[in-house]
Simulated scan of single mutants.
Amino acid sequence: MATTKSYAAHSATTPLEPWTFERRNLKPTDVQMDILFCGVCHSDLHYARNEWGMTTYPIVPGHEIVGKITAVGSAVTKHKVGDYAGIGCLVDSCRQCDNCKQDQEQYCTNGFVGTYGGMEKDGSGPTHGGYSKNILCHEDFVLHISDKLDLAATAPLLCAGITTYSPLRHWKVGPGMKVGILGLGGLGHMGVKFAVSMGAEVTMLSHTPGKKADAERLGAHKFVLTSDSEQVKSVGGYFDFILDTVSAQHDYNMYLSMLRTNGVMVCVGVPPAPIPVHSMSLIFGRHTLAGSLIGGIAETQEMLDFCAEHNIVSDIEMIRMDQINEAYERLLTGDVRYRFVIDMDSL
């Protein structure tokens, strides 16, 4: 076992602080990597503060990980020492259920193993994430990173990227489709980039007037200020597809009214409380309200390859490891454009 430096939360009410722990030994099918960059996801904050009621302490967050491979097990065939690689939200799954067999490990019916806050399938201990110097996991859950991509700006693709790419791919967004992206944050800005690259007409839906210039810079063709009733009325029955990235309370019914017949609205944001949906919002227009969770490993690799082909990365603000608590407070107010990334050399 190897001693590893990290930043960890030890309770829901105390700041993250330096912590040293033991990583397990390298298994024959494992890849070990030194972490170069780690994105900061809002889920990290939720887990650190036990806002979802499932945290076991201490916990080392971080599941948007990019690094360099330093060791491989004797049975590893997919990766080699010296490669740049990534690890996202998953480090294992049962491999046996129908979903896993269809490359949908994120929906493993026996429970996937999260990069942090999970438990190793062999019972060897809890998983700890990317706010640390190094990490190891089974080679099947390690992703190839193209040398065409900026490594730091690639890190958020491992969660924010795949979270938005997967539903756009699943519902076959492409040329001729009118797509609305609701919310311009860490997820929304990736949704705009992907939908534009897929050939759709893209409209940013935001209640913040100041987001218009950024939406246009990111490639959005139109902007609708959702606090303006006339602008909202102008897109009634307009969209084939809406990607809802908002995690604050908002009116689903208003956005469902913007869908064309057979239109689909997919939620990837997680509001803090249930939101009422009137059946009429679905029945009239045969609308679909759906959800989507990250993506499987094969699809995540597909997304990374798509990004390399289309030169897509996240817009980031680099921080030091010792700035993480300040970054969490800024996350709560939306004060980041559009993803914090930790330079792990600073740990």
Score class of each variant (00 low, 15 high):
Thr127Cys: 01
Ala273Pro: 02
Phe37Thr: 07
Leu293His: 09
Pro61Glu: 11
Trp171Gln: 02
Ser257Asn: 11
Ala12Tyr: 01
Asp92Met: 08
Arg330Ile: 07
Val313Asn: 12
Ser229Gln: 13
Tyr116Met: 09
Ile87Glu: 06
Ala273Trp: 03
Tyr255Asn: 08
Cys159Asn: 12
Arg339Val: 07
Phe239Pro: 08
Ile162Met: 00
Asp147Phe: 00
Glu51Leu: 14
Ile342Ala: 11
Gly285Phe: 14
Gly291Lys: 02
Glu299Ala: 09
Ile162Val: 15
Asp140Met: 04
Met344Pro: 10
Leu151Asn: 10
Val224Asp: 07
Asp140His: 15
Glu139Cys: 10
Ile87Val: 14
Val173Ser: 07
Glu326His: 09
Lys193His: 01
Ser124Phe: 08
Ser206Tyr: 02
Asp34Ser: 14
Leu184Asp: 01
Met190Ile: 00
Ser43Val: 12
Thr14Ala: 09
Ser292Asp: 02
His250Phe: 11
His170Lys: 15
Asn325His: 07
Phe239Trp: 03
Leu293Lys: 08
Tyr84Lys: 05
Ile87Pro: 06
Asp244Leu: 03
Ile283Asn: 14
Gly39Met: 03
Val196Trp: 04
His79Met: 10
Ala8His: 05
Leu331Glu: 06
Gln301Leu: 06
Val72Gln: 04
Gly191Val: 02
Leu45Trp: 10
Cys137Gly: 10
Gly186Cys: 01
Ile69Leu: 08
Pro167Arg: 06
Arg49Asn: 09
Lys101Leu: 15
Leu45Gly: 03
Ile342Val: 15
Asp343Ser: 03
Thr226Trp: 00
Leu151Trp: 02
Tyr165Asp: 04
Gln102Pro: 00
Leu256Asp: 07
Glu105Ala: 06
Pro18His: 06
Glu139Ile: 12
Leu256Lys: 03
Cys38His: 12
Phe37Asn: 07
Asn253Glu: 06
Asn311His: 15
Ala85Tyr: 03
Val142Phe: 05
Pro276Leu: 07
His144Phe: 09
His10Cys: 09
Thr154Val: 01
Gly291Ala: 04
Cys89Phe: 12
Leu182Pro: 01
Glu51Pro: 01
Met1Asn: 06
Val264Ser: 12
Glu22Gln: 06
Gly129Val: 13
Ile145Tyr: 05
Gln102Thr: 05
Val142Tyr: 04
Val224Glu: 00
Lys212Ile: 01
Asp98Thr: 15
Ile145Ser: 02
Pro175Val: 13
Glu329Thr: 13
Pro209Ser: 06
Pro167Gln: 00
Leu149Cys: 00
His79Trp: 12
Asp240Pro: 10
Tyr131Gly: 01
Thr20Ile: 10
Cys89Asp: 02
Gly111Trp: 09
Ala9Met: 09
Tyr47Phe: 15
Phe141Glu: 08
Met265Asn: 00
Asp34Glu: 15
Ser247Gly: 10
Met1Arg: 10
Asp315Pro: 00
Asn25Met: 05
His144Val: 08
Ile342Tyr: 13
Leu256Trp: 08
His46Pro: 01
Asn25Asp: 15
Leu332Ser: 13
Lys222Thr: 03
Lys148Met: 06
Ile297Thr: 14
Thr127Ala: 05
Asp240Tyr: 07
Glu105Val: 13
Ser74Asn: 12
Arg95Ile: 09
Val224Arg: 02
Glu317Asn: 08
Leu16Lys: 11
Thr300Trp: 04
Leu45Val: 13
Pro175Thr: 12
Thr288Arg: 08
Gln106Arg: 13
Thr3Tyr: 00
Met344Phe: 08
Val341Tyr: 07
Tyr131Thr: 02
Ile324Tyr: 05
Leu187Phe: 03
Phe340Trp: 01
Val179Thr: 11
